[in-house]
């Protein structure tokens, strides 16, 4: 069917585009790859150099206070972290944590302003929404390919891919949170002569804070899942033992690494949740 239409070389075009971007923007990619990469590795190394029990202590005490002086999360964190250490995955844990932290941080730095822009302009919303859909539904592996082209292998392409995959929830929730502020409150802000910036910072962002934090929580979770996938392009961390267990059909090793990821996910999820649920 439709033989009269020759096959459109979309794949070739994208290849050409990627090559062109790599060559043209090498002056941006190279320092990112080198300096930023070194910086992240330095953080991961520093965290790895701290004795595990100090980090455990901080996490456990933090969990106790952040959940309103309850023992549940603190006990879980303690047992979970001791388990990971016991399985010899501590360094991997620190690398994964560093990657997730950096990816989430960048996602928030990019996502919140984009969300604000979207909430203020119907045109921006109409343009950005389909892009967000694209970013979220495209299979995550696909981002790894240009990421390697831009940044070769290692931590930086992992963060790049996570950034694309994990930013949408922050953008969406920021947009939603600001749009949900009631008309009467917006009118009140305007009626007293607020400038646009005053309205944003004195009313809309404080009102939307809870919703934005819910989006950031989602972003952290997505970044964590992506960071594991990024192990395929050499990003260090808990994903590595998973990938190598897969290749060697070692069910046990895969299970242990998988459980470690779940433990980290639960701790990070509860931490971010308790920030936005706090009154």
């Amino acid at each position: 069917m439709f033989d009269f239409i020759p096959e459109i070389p979309v794949a070739d075009w994208v290849d050409d585009l990627t090559d062109w971007i790599v060559e043209t923007f090498a002056f941006i990619f190279d320092p990112l790859k080198n300096e930023f990469g070194d910086f992240i590795e330095w953080i991961a190394d520093m965290l790895g150099a701290v004795p595990p029990f100090i980090i455990m202590l901080l996490v456990v005490v933090g969990a106790f206070f952040i959940t309103g002086k309850k023992f549940g999360l603190a006990a879980f964190s303690l047992v979970g972290l001791i388990f990971i250490e016991n399985q010899g995955l501590w360094i991997e844990l620190m690398s994964t944590f560093t990657l997730v932290l950096m990816a989430s941080l960048l996602s928030v730095i990019v996502g919140v302003p984009v969300g604000i822009l979207m909430s203020k302009s119907k045109v921006a919303e109409a343009i950005i929404l389909p892009i967000l859909d694209f970013m979220q539904t495209m299979p995550a592996f696909v981002y790894l390919i240009p990421a390697v082209a831009f940044f070769s292998i290692g931590m930086v392409p992992g963060i790049f891919a996570s950034l694309i995959f994990a930013t949408p929830p922050t953008v969406r929730f920021t947009n939603l949170g600001i749009r949900q502020v009631s008309t009467e409150l917006k009118e009140a802000a305007e009626a007293f002569g607020s400038t646009g910036a005053q309205k944003l910072f004195k009313l809309e962002l404080p009102m939307a804070k809870g919703t934005i934090m819910a989006g950031i929580n989602q972003t952290v979770m997505l970044a964590l899942s992506m960071v594991v996938i990024a192990s395929m392009i050499g990003a260090p961390g808990l994903g590595n033992p998973v990938v190598s267990a897969l290749q060697r059909a070692q069910a046990g090793a895969g299970f242990v690494a998988g459980i470690s990821i779940v433990i980290l996910a639960i701790i990070m999820d509860r931490y971010t949740q308790s920030i936005y649920k706090k009154k």
Partner: peptide, 21 residues
């Protein structure tokens, strides 16, 4: 317009329009 709103006109709203935070 902002200047006039700040100096000359104030508004009171049906559902109070107070900032809850």
């Amino acid at each position: 317009l902002r200047r006039v709103r700040r100096e000359k006109l104030s508004m009171v709203f049906q559902n109070f329009g107070l900032f809850p935070f």
